[in-house]
């Protein structure tokens, strides 16, 4: 049985001064996540990722549809003790210390009194915040707050962890640490559902991904499948600028750095390209088939009728609204 089962989950808003116009935050969504999966929820900013998570957490209420977690309705109390949640850009009580906050949240999660203090310390060290445990949260940097957020999401040992943009605000080292953490959670048998718009992270971590845009689910698939498609292009790496013209004639795109040249061209022209390189007395270094990236899938799913920039602003070229 899927650990997360979403069926027709929809959220409509009434907007405008007289609250007459309707805006759809989430079109009916149907999705299932299996136990032990790391599931990536991808989409540009404003796509509806946070809305979905808030619906799952019971922070907002759906206008239609249902969501079940661990076999129970998402708003059921018994569920909440077994899940963890990291909101986007978390904000905590200014005047508490990290330690006090985690203890408070551990209390509310029902962690046993005996275990609380050890758990809190364990979590703090896991997110590398032991040194700042007695500092008031208002003095924390964004990255530190993010790490506190992760700590509070897992401190009660939940079976399912929901993370909204877990990498946001982190430097590359921090992001690496979070990636390792998610990997570790997976190895512990937990199910991780996280949203992001950073595709490389998703590609590295996720078993499956879903792409959402403008409140609508555009596609779901296993990362392996999506990135194993061969695009029909190959990448050549060689040394020797002399061969460039010949490769360009075969439809290759060139990137040259000094004497080292990299070119991408259709696979059909591979043999001809190798000949061209040999004729120019250049030294062939590597030949690699180009695999599709998640980004390709992403852009594809976002739709040919809309050009999407990385900030999520959409320029409408088609009829979709």
């Amino acid at each position: 049985m899927p650990v997360i089962e979403i069926s027709g989950l929809e959220k409509r808003y009434l907007v405008g001064f007289w609250r007459k116009r309707e805006k759809i935050g989430l079109h009916p969504l149907t999705l299932a996540v299996e136990k032990g999966e790391v599931f990536g929820f991808l989409g540009p900013n404003g796509a509806g990722k946070t809305t979905t998570l808030k619906l799952l957490m019971g922070l907002i209420f759906p206008t239609a549809g249902t969501a079940n977690i661990l076999g129970l309705p998402s708003y059921d109390h018994r569920v909440k003790a077994r899940i963890g949640y990291l909101p986007e850009n978390p904000y905590f009580y200014d005047h508490l210390t990290a330690e006090e906050l985690l203890e408070y949240l551990a209390q509310l999660s029902g962690v046993d009194a005996r275990n609380r203090k050890p758990r809190v310390q364990e979590m703090l060290s896991r997110v590398a915040l032991t040194g700042s445990s007695r500092v008031q949260l208002r003095k924390f940097s964004k990255g530190m707050l993010q790490r506190v957020g992760i700590a509070q999401a897992i401190l009660h040992n939940p079976e399912v962890v929901f993370l909204d943009e877990p990498m946001s605000g982190l430097d590359p080292i921090g992001r690496r640490e979070v990636r390792d953490l998610i990997q570790a959670l997976k190895e512990e048998g937990k199910t991780v559902f996280f949203s992001t718009h950073i595709l490389s992270d998703a590609e590295a971590l996720c078993d499956r991904v879903a792409v959402i845009h403008l409140g609508e689910l555009r596609g779901v698939g296993a990362v392996d499948d999506l990135t194993s498609r061969v695009t029909g292009q190959v990448e050549l790496l060689w040394q020797g600028a002399g061969a460039i013209d010949g490769i360009v004639a075969l439809g290759g795109k060139i990137h040259a750095t000094g004497e080292i040249v990299r070119a991408t061209l259709p696979e059909a022209n591979l043999d001809a390209a190798i000949d061209a390189i040999r004729r120019a007395h250049a030294k062939l270094i590597a030949v690699t088939p180009v695999r599709s990236t998640l980004e390709d899938y992403f852009v594809e799913k976002l739709g040919a009728d809309a050009a999407v920039t990385m900030t999520g602003k959409t320029e409408k070229t088609g009829a979709r609204s």
């Binding site: 957490m57 922070l59 003790a81 949640y85 909101p87 850009n89 949240l105 509310l108 999660s109």
Partner: peptide, 14 residues
Amino acid sequence: ERRTLYTVLSRPVR
């Protein structure tokens, strides 16, 4: 307004 509440309400708190 500041969403400090989110992490509290995601727990078994009515």
